[in-house]
Design a protein around this nucleic acid. Structure first.
Lengths: 214, 214
DNA sequence: ATTTAGTTACTGACAGCACAGTAAGTTACC
DNA sequence: GGTAACTTACTGTGCTGTCAGTAACTAAAT
């Protein structure tokens, strides 16, 4: 089949070269979207022809998937000691991430654009994002459970909803922030919302909107 | 110049025809994205050639802008009596919208995809979404102020952040829901998060995450 | 009421580019 | 000398936009 470069021995410099390509691809896909981001532009950013890129990654689809995976790895390496923070620490970590993100709009945009694009027909990134959100939700849920335990309260049924909500605010704020950086404070707003949601889980109060309203 | 059809008299049936096109365009753009959604597909859905569509809208860019505007109008007409709900009623309205959205994934997807796509370079929908969010944020902020007044409390500084947060959760949840409908409850989760945020505004409590953490 | 003139709503054909992918050849490593 | 890392050159397709033409409608003139 077309499966070239399987086991074989890539040259030492090659790995770094591929990483360059992945970085460039993330930048282009981030700023122009996947469908609208041509291989040629990625190529010229690493001083290559687009055929060279296809040599390394086989197809544009596969390139996207690898870009996504690569970012994940890079992020994980960023976390000291590799350990997933637990309980309170995870939420603090999320807030810190929001602060850090204000310094890297490129990456923020890449995730915002690519995650939304992934829900479209036949998008090669869909599976990645599906799994990513599932994983993240469960990590957040776990943090909630730990916090409940620490406080000696039973884990409420709202945990799953809260977990999805926490991720949702962060993502949604990113879009608003990208559209209007002058008027949206990404980090502070994320912190506010996360605190609101965590509070609602740990210490629920009656709805200010009256009885449930479907 | 190319500015034909200026003042003159469009045929009576034409308006309805254009609306058909706008509906079809929303569907295609929604399911495949703007860049990835070809005119031909929109055309065949209304039994026309793509040239016919360009006759009506001039360019694909302009079609997108009109699609967005059209949805807005359609939504506004949907609200009984045209009045913008105030105070508590606005939040109840948002929750109801979330419930309603569960029955129309197409529209939800269109907004999710197009709003994120709009932050990319040169996207013709950008201005629309910029204005839309600005407007929505100010409506939500106004509702907060009304609620504060009703309760005889001073409007806190958190209102702007809360407003952005409310919209952000709703949007972010939509993406997660579109990716994994089996595991994300769009409406209930929106309700939960909105209540959490409203509560945090009206009746703030110390952060469960400890002192502010930048 | 019918012609006339003009406009609108298209179709069909095509220009023309942009893009992903392929195949064959070239260089340089190991 | 074999294979990895390319380039050049090319193919084929997909897509937006243009253009000329046509049929149907509308308005005014006769």
């Amino acid at each position: 089949m077309t499966t070239a470069r399987r086991a074989s021995n890539p040259r030492p410099a090659t790995l770094e070269r591929r990483r360059e390509i992945l970085r460039a691809a993330l930048e282009i896909f981030g700023s122009k979207g996947y469908n609208n981001g041509p291989l040629v532009e990625i190529a010229e950013q690493v001083d290559m022809t687009h055929a060279g890129i296809l040599h390394h990654f086989g197809s544009k689809d596969r390139l996207l998937v690898e870009v996504l995976r690569y970012r994940d790895e890079a992020d994980v390496e960023g976390i000291e000691g590799q350990h997933i923070p637990d309980g309170t620490e995870l939420f603090r970590h999320l807030v810190r991430t929001a602060f850090a993100n204000e310094e890297r709009p490129g990456i923020v945009q890449a995730y915002a654009v690519l995650s939304a694009e992934s829900v479209t027909d036949g998008n090669p990134g869909r599976e990645y994002f599906e799994q990513r959100y599932t994983q993240l939700r469960s990590e957040v849920a776990q943090a909630f459970r730990v916090m409940c335990e620490e406080r000696g309260i039973d884990a409420p049924a709202t945990i799953d909803r809260a977990s999805a909500s926490v991720l949702a605010v962060m993502d949604g704020l990113q879009v608003q922030w990208l559209l209007d950086r002058g008027n949206v404070e990404l980090a502070e707003t994320s912190a506010f919302a996360i605190e609101a949601i965590v509070t609602a889980v740990l210490d629920p109060r009656p709805s200010p909107l009256g009885p449930d309203a479907p």
